[in-house]
Amino acid sequence: MRDRIYLSSPHMSGNELKYIEKVFESNYIAPLGEYVDKFEQSVKNYTGAKNALAVINATSAIHLALRVLGVGEGDDVLVSTFTFIGSVTPVLYQGANPVFIDSDKESWNMSAKLLNKYLLTCDKKPKALILTHLYGMSADIKKITEICKLHGVFLIEDAAESLGATYDSQHTGTFGDLGVYSFNGNKILTTSGGGILVSENKEYIKKAKYYATQAREDEIHYEHLEYGYNYRMSNVLAAIGVAQMEVLEERVNKKRKIFEWYKEFLADNDNIEFMSELDNSRGNRWLTALRLKNIDYHDVIEALNKINVESRPLWKPMHMQVLFKDSKSYLDGTSENIFANGICLASSTTMSKDDVKAICEVILCC
């Protein structure tokens, strides 16, 4: 049997071990060192973000963003309902209330139209919005940014899945007050586990860094006026990140090529609807996502597993989770409909065109 093909497996550049060896030679294993600075700088250089902070994962980065913006007990925070739970749990960490906004049919990301309607009619003004760029594809970020500014709502971009994606040639994650990228094991780049918080606002990142390092005051002894967290990335993981950032554009191009192969082999099939790309945007196509008509995605997942290929359903919307059964939502049914017949296909950058062809042959037989 073939080696298992995963949804999005790690793909090393070749320089990771060399940089890790330099870290070991320096003996700055953790918590910090020169490669943390280099990693942050590489993300700033690539995305155009003015300030960056390397942390242990994207969830911690969102948590820091909420803390920096003053979100606290009883505040409402708007969140994309069609997302991974890591986008939402930091709201609970702060004792705030998630309010879920549905998707649009064009991008599957948060609907700017529904967002605006909610803000025009809600009884309680939300403190912030956490917007997810789903599966590496840009949301209608310019409209959503304008809406947030109009209503005085802080915008946190959850670009965990969309490093390398752009809208009007500007990188996702750099439109809002703060943005977040993930370097988890299955993302387009990985540091094993890690995240980056970015912002145009230097003071936001300075404050986030303070909270991420146990809120220690600048004293020779350990002095604390506030509580913080142990959220900083280690020098070893940052060294992996530096090497990974060197090949980011290659990875984006390969992900997009894999998507084009899927389109080629599944062309003119009325039972297939791919996640679309908004005009003026470039997605990183982290995962190839599609909807199946007249085909049960469970059958496809089972059939692909038989040839040792991983696939999975789309994210189950957060408003459908038992954990959030009492949370407020503003919905029109779009995300539920997409979830009901949606699937993610293997998109590892080590895949060949023949791998994609074999996967498509299985889908067409279901």
Rank of each mutant, 00 (worst) to 15 (best):
S182V: 02
H171G: 03
Y93Q: 10
L150W: 01
D123Q: 15
A212N: 09
F154I: 02
V91R: 06
I188T: 06
V99F: 05
F100S: 10
G195S: 09
H133Y: 10
T145Y: 11
L92D: 13
L120E: 14
N97E: 13
T166P: 04
A160F: 09
N109A: 08
S111F: 00
V99D: 04
A112G: 07
N201A: 05
A160Y: 08
I147L: 03
A139S: 15
L155H: 07
I156T: 11
C122M: 09
T172N: 14
T213A: 13
T190M: 04
F175E: 08
A159F: 08
P126N: 12
D168I: 03
Q170T: 13
I156C: 12
A165Y: 03
V180F: 09
A128N: 12
Y211D: 07
S182F: 03
A112D: 01
V99K: 10
F154C: 08
N184K: 10
K187T: 09
N184V: 00
S199G: 12
Q170A: 13
S169W: 03
Q94W: 03
N186R: 13
Y167W: 10
S199T: 12
T172I: 15
I205Q: 04
K207G: 01
Y204S: 13
D104T: 01
T191D: 02
Y118A: 00
H133Q: 11
E146I: 01
N116C: 06
K125F: 07
E106F: 00
Y93N: 14
I196H: 07
L150S: 13
Y118E: 00
F154R: 13
E161S: 15
D102R: 00
E146T: 06
K143Q: 14
T121Q: 14
S111G: 05
N116V: 00
H171R: 05
A159Y: 09
V99G: 04
A160K: 09
W108S: 03
S103Q: 06
T132L: 14
H133T: 06
T166C: 08
A165T: 02
I147F: 02
G176L: 07
Y93I: 01
G195P: 04
N201G: 05
S169A: 11
Q170I: 14
F175N: 06
D104H: 02
Y181A: 08
G136N: 10
H171C: 12
E203P: 01
I196P: 05
G152S: 10
L178M: 15
T172C: 15
L150H: 10
G195V: 02
Y135T: 02
K206F: 08
N184W: 01
I156V: 15
Q214F: 14
T89G: 06
V99H: 05
L131N: 04
A208N: 12
L134K: 07
H151S: 05
Y181I: 02
V198P: 05
K113T: 05
Y210D: 11
P90H: 09
I130S: 09
G136C: 10
S107C: 02
L119D: 01
E106H: 02
F183D: 04
E146G: 02
G95D: 09
P90T: 07
T89H: 09
S162G: 14
K206M: 12
T166D: 08
N186C: 11
S107E: 02
T166Y: 06
Y93E: 14
K209D: 14
V99R: 05
N186T: 14
Y211V: 06
T166I: 03
C122H: 06
L197Q: 07
L134R: 09
A112P: 07
T172M: 14
N184D: 15
